[in-house]
Nucleic acid binder design. Structure first.
Lengths: 230, 230
DNA sequence: GAGTCCCTGACAGTTTCTGTCAGGATAATT
DNA sequence: AATTATCCTGACAGAAACTGTCAGGGACTC
C-alpha cells in the first residue's frame, strides 16, 4: 500500500470512527507503525485536513475537508444493497419505498462496473416467517420521532391491560420478531418500551415535546443501559 | 511537495478543469516534469481512478472515483441508516465494517442538516437472540460469489449426512435465523441450498465457474420459484 | 507533413519513507 | 502523587520510491 493510498484510508478510518481513535489502533488497522501514523497525520493536516489529537484521548477528524470520500468499494456496495433490501422487506411501506429510492439514487452516481454490482448483488433477504401483524402504520410514528412530537396511543400491555397514554417517542427498534417504540411516558413519568403489535391506535399530536430528543436518547441509554449504535 | 500531496493536487486539478488538460500544463502547475505527471496518472489509476488520456487532446478524469454530493429526504436517510445498522449487526465482520464505512461516506457528502439526521436517526436494530453460530467466515464466500468462483465445502445436511462438494455459489440469503448459500452443486448437477451453520469448511477455489452468474441466477429463480429482489 | 500529445523504457542520483529506539509532555484517573 | 493512556518529537539507517533526462514510439488533427 502506497503512502497516498494509506492517507486516504486513514482519512476514511477517521471518518468512520466518530469518537476519538488512538494512533495505535489506526496503526494496527493500516498495518504500519505508530510513528508512521503520527507522520501521516501531519501530512494530512498539511494538506488541509483538520485532525485534532489530544493526549490520553486520540484523534478526531473535524469535518469539512475539501476532498470527498472515495467511491464505494465492492463490499460497501454489497452492504448497502443488503441493508436496503432488508428495509424493503421489513420496514413499513413508506420506509420500504424510501429504501428503494435511496438505492436508486446511489446507483445513479456509480460508475458502470459498480452499477452492475448493484444489479447483480449476491446478497438477499429471506422472507420473515413470523410477521407480527401490527395494527398501526409505523411511518407516522417515525415522523413523530423525527419531529419530536407527542403521540397518543392506545396500548395493551403483556398482561392484557389496556391503557391510553401520551408518549414522547424517541426511537423505533427493529427486532427479528417485533418492533418496539421507545418513549418517555407522560403517565409513568419514565421511559417505557411499547411493542408495535400491541399499539392499537396511535394518533400523532401536533404538540412537540419539551425536551430535545438528543437529550432524551442519552438519558434513555444511561438509565436503560442501551449501548450506542454505530 | 511530496508525492502523495501532489497526487491529491493533481486530482483536484483534473476535477477543476472539466475539459481535457495536457500533461504539460499539469506539469507546469505542479512544478514537476511531464514524465512525473505520466507516472502520477498511472498511480491514480492504480488506486481506482479513471483518468483517460488521448493523444493530441489531454487528460480527463472520469467521474466515479470520488463520491459526489448526494441528496436524500428524511425517509431515505432513515432507510439507509436502518439498513446499514442492520448489516452492522447481522453481517459478517467484513460486511459490517463495510456498512459502517458506506454510511459514513454518505454522511460526509450530505449537507449539514441532513448529516445531523444521520446521527440522530431514531431507527435502531435490536440484537438478534438466536444467533446460529457459523463455523466459517462468510466473507470469502461472498467474494467467491462476486467473482464467480467455485468453492469446495464440507457440509452436513439436515439428516446429519456429511459430504464434500464443489459448488458454484450464486447468492447468500439472510433469514432471521440462518443464512443460506444458494449454489449449483457439481455433485448433484442441480441447484442446492446450504445453510451456513452447517458448512463446516469452505475453501474458495481459484477456478471460475463456466457460466455467468447472471444466467445461473435466472435459472435458479425459475426452477426454484424465487422472485426477483428489486 | 507538421504539430500535439500520450506513453514507455532505462539510468542513476536523489529523496523519501519506515520502523526502531529514546525520551518528553499532557491530562485524566486512581 | 503515582499511574495510565496518549500525543508528539528527534535521530538513524537501510530500504524503497521517486524524479528528471534522454530517447523513442504511436495516434490523431489540420
Amino acid at each position: 500500500m502506497s503512502k497516498s493510498e494509506r492517507l486516504l484510508a486513514l482519512l476514511q478510518a477517521l471518518r468512520a470512527y466518530r469518537r476519538p481513535v488512538s494512533a495505535e489502533r489506526l496503526a494496527d488497522e493500516l498495518n504500519v507503525s505508530i510513528r508512521t501514523i503520527y507522520r501521516d497525520v501531519v501530512s494530512l493536516n498539511a494538506q488541509g485536513a483538520t485532525i485534532e489529537g489530544e493526549a490520553g484521548i486520540g484523534y478526531v477528524l473535524r469535518p469539512g475537508f475539501l476532498l470527498p470520500p472515495l467511491m464505494f468499494d465492492d463490499e460497501e456496495i454489497e452492504a448497502l444493497v443488503l441493508g436496503s433490501r432488508w428495509v424493503m422487506q421489513r420496514g413499513d411501506k413508506l420506509l420500504a419505498h424510501a429504501a428503494r429510492n435511496a438505492l436508486t439514487k446511489i446507483a445513479a452516481v456509480l460508475p458502470e462496473d459498480l452499477k452492475e454490482r448493484v444489479e447483480l448483488a449476491g446478497v438477499m433477504v429471506g422472507a420473515s416467517r413470523e410477521a407480527a401483524p401490527e395494527p398501526v402504520d409505523l411511518s407516522p410514528i417515525r415522523q413523530s420521532i423525527r419531529e419530536e412530537r407527542k403521540i397518543k396511543i392506545a396500548y395493551t400491555d403483556e398482561k392484557g391491560q389496556k391503557s391510553e397514554r401520551i408518549i414522547w417517542p424517541i426511537a423505533l427498534a427493529f427486532f427479528d420478531r417485533a418492533r418496539v417504540v421507545a418513549a418517555w411516558c407522560e403517565m409513568r413519568q419514565d421511559f417505557r418500551h411499547f411493542r408495535a403489535d400491541r399499539i392499537e391506535k396511535a394518533k400523532p399530536l401536533k404538540q412537540r415535546y419539551p425536551k430535545r430528543r438528543r437529550v432524551l436518547l442519552k438519558d434513555w441509554r444511561i438509565t436503560q443501559g442501551i449501548p450506542e449504535q454505530f
